[in-house]
Amino acid sequence: MIAGLTWLLAFQVLGEVLVRVLDVTVPGPVAGMLLLFVFLRLRRYGDDGSIVRAGSALLRHLQLFFVPAGVGVVVYLAVLRDHALPIAAAVLGSWLLGLVVVGWTAVGLERLLGKPRDDLGDPV
């Protein structure tokens, strides 16, 4: 477990270094994720390795790690109440538009390239 966490932290630090050197606003962990992906591919990393075990344990509780930032909602209750309509409409509306655009663009291009997939089998 500790070996795997050490690797994950090392890749996070590598990501932080990379975004500083390139001077981009991308967060270090996202760059670290892409670097780790390349590393796992090149090493043909197996499912029983320490990185997979530690990483899977963290991913099972991904939602927990958002809680401290989410509690920040208490500070902004008044703002949320005063601007409830524009906030709700903008957040929900742009979420739905984004979901539709990403999903349909991806599926549409797959069809165009002649490689559509249907993973769900029976109609849902």
């Binding site: 890749f11 994720m33 780790l36 990185i51 509780h61």
Partner: peptide
């Protein structure tokens, strides 16, 4: 959250 984000590579 940082290491877990890195772990999404898995």
């Amino acid at each position: 959250l940082g290491p877990a984000t890195v772990a999404l590579a898995i």
